[in-house]
Design a protein around this nucleic acid. Structure first.
Lengths: 230, 230, 230, 230
DNA sequence: TATGAATGAGAATTCATTCAT
DNA sequence: GATGAATGAATTCTCATTCAT
């Protein structure tokens, strides 16, 4: 009521109080919830805040979600699956030299992280993995595992082709994306603390070069497989 | 207070039963708190549980800590500063070829992560960085920044010596530890989800090799500095 | 809404589906409400359930009733007044020996209880008498008092005629219907608990015999009035 | 806070705010809860009211009872089992003529009903039997069934001895207590409505006489068994 | 010091009621 | 008339914190 008078007083043409938006509402709620959850974490997020941000009443939330947990699930599982599916499809279809994909993939991830709430959601999944095991599974299966598997296959293919050195392909995948993941979390966590957050695109470029070099082995020998790995 | 006088004054020779070591209490509480916080996160952790785990009553907690937040602060800031200080000292004193340090540092971190609650605390800091900015700062200054700075200096020294390729030394540091950080979080978050968690020591070894190779530049030219980096 | 226009506009000759008879609605609602109230009690009854059972929307309820309380009132006060009025009229017009009426009355009540929601409503009135004093009054005046008064007059007439022993006629009326009331509530309350609910018709018959005997006094003396009652 | 000042202002020596009464508290809470539940019914009873009546805070309730339901259970199952057990024991041990027991039993019930919350609890059990099936069972097994069984055995014994007429002994038991039950509920439900509530002791006496007479059969034949019952 | 009973502010959830369509 | 999305007051339950013992 105070809210109404406040917004009402300053902008007479405000949208009507009771709009019917059955179709749009869930997405709007999820968007607001994402903001609040990302900012406060699951437990510290108040439904009051989510509702206010969505411009609706607290009760309305319950027309669309059974519980706060369901909202959290919706937020986490809704997001990004599509983006990473695209990335996977692109990588799978790529036929050129394996190492060409490295900077592309890293740059994509960097771009996605910069332009979305990806790091915020990652943070939440990390935080609540114990309390929401099913979300950990979803995030693992839909996002993390998908990226790791894609890269692992890519690297294995490169090894077969003789483009890349031997070694555990999955660990190589960690070598490839790990710095990106760390940087992305660093920026998220220490945003207000660190004076010098790493530049994601610069990291994508430089690390690609480094890792390509590291994984190609000695050019003098002509083949990556010419080296002996444990 | 009555208790103290009783046990102290009137029954001098009995073994101290109630009066546990005042000095050890805080550490015991912190240890219990660490377990509970690590398991549930800050908000979901109940002081009841912490007290029970510490074998004391809830009220007693407040003899040693002002608030739940203080306990959380103590938990986070107490831990690991010493370990990483040691690591830093060791690295600073090291005079041999830079790359020799890489596997040692990574192995150390891997060992520390495996034998301590390091990943659990990292998880908590990630989760609560927004709600506890000062903890983010502490963790940043005492742990993350310290490691990154140490590595950055190390790499810069290697670059000066011509052992390592050019490039932003700090980003190189991300290249070096990022995979370790990612793996460590992966294991923590997907412990019960993933069937194939990465082996930390194996990763330390393999990634060291890769990154050493990647940072040493082209062997054909004979020197790392022979390459031009942006 | 789309449905309405579709069925209304494009298919003119179909039988009216949506547009139910305005006149019958209240009765339909009351019937549904009775079911739900009887099952859950006033507070635990949800308007959602009543609406669903009535095949209408929640909002439509409010076209016919101001509040949930009004619906409850309608349910309770609508029911059974007619039945008991009939019973009263019948008893008042009966001119034969008083005791002949006893089994008839009890059987009627038993039949009514078995074939209607009478016990359920009684239960609700009992439950909500404090919260709905006016309903208690209505139920008292329309049902309970009416039955008791009828029986009391009947018994008093029998006493005057010398057919029945002396005594407080109203208490005799309790003696007459009490077992029926108790049995009816027993069945309602312990339906799912008791393995042996009393048979209402059997009780009507047996109790009639017993009470007739008890109220006729000693047959040897020839008259009931031959005995002295306090 | 207002409460404190109110009570504090008028009576300076009021009991200290935070008293420790671990042993007494449950009984105190149950007593208060009984009052509130009896007055409002389960759903309309507010924990606030119960707490206030018990002179404690809302939170304290939860130190002793898990949920509102548990409190309700405690209230219902705590009460009266002892009283009826005594009654049962007395009846079982009685060796004199069966009919002598009738007025005693009824008077006892009347006295119990008049001096306790028995009718109020009965009302609640009736009201919530659907929502709390286990309470219905407890009340049935501990109270209702116990009384009915006792009376049924008593009557059956009387029939064997030739003191009482034949017939279904259990239905006879309904004949015996039914009027008492009805009167007790009548008083409870129509307390503020009816101008002439039945006098319980008078009913106990008069109905005893009537039913003794009714169950002894025709004095002319000399024996109860001289009559034929269906 | 230590206890644990007591507190009470706070949050999620429910649901009768309203109202734009 | 009919709908059902939206509302928000009301209520249960939680738990960090306090304090008498």
């Amino acid at each position: 009521m105070t809210l109404k008078s406040l917004t009402g007083a300053s902008m007479p043409n405000q949208p009507p109080k009771r709009r019917r938006r059955k179709t749009e509402r869930p997405a709007e709620i999820i968007a607001s919830a994402l903001d609040v959850f990302a900012d406060k974490g699951f437990a510290a997020a108040k439904l009051d805040d989510i509702a206010r941000l969505a411009g609706i009443s607290k009760g309305t939330l319950y027309l669309y979600f059974e519980t706060k947990e369901e909202m959290f699930r919706a937020v986490v599982s809704t997001a990004f699956a599509a983006d990473f599916e695209k990335m996977e499809a692109f990588a799978s279809g790529f036929e050129g030299p394996t190492t060409q994909l490295f900077p592309i993939m890293l740059s994509n991830i960097a771009a996605l992280a910069a332009n979305s709430k990806l790091p915020a959601i990652a943070k939440m999944v990390i935080a609540e993995s114990r309390n929401f095991p099913d979300l950990a599974r979803i995030w693992h299966d839909d996002i993390v595992s998908r990226v790791l598997d894609t890269l692992t296959k890519l690297i294995a293919r490169g090894q077969k082709r003789g483009e890349l050195v031997a070694g555990d392909a999955r660990l190589h995948a960690f070598s490839l994306v790990g710095p990106m993941v760390m940087a992305l979390l660093f920026r998220e966590v220490f945003a207000s603390t660190a004076s010098n957050p790493p530049d994601l695109q610069a990291l994508a470029l430089q690390h690609s070069k480094t890792i390509i070099h590291g994984l190609q082995g000695s050019p003098t020998t002509g083949t990556a497989s010419g080296r002996k790995k444990t």
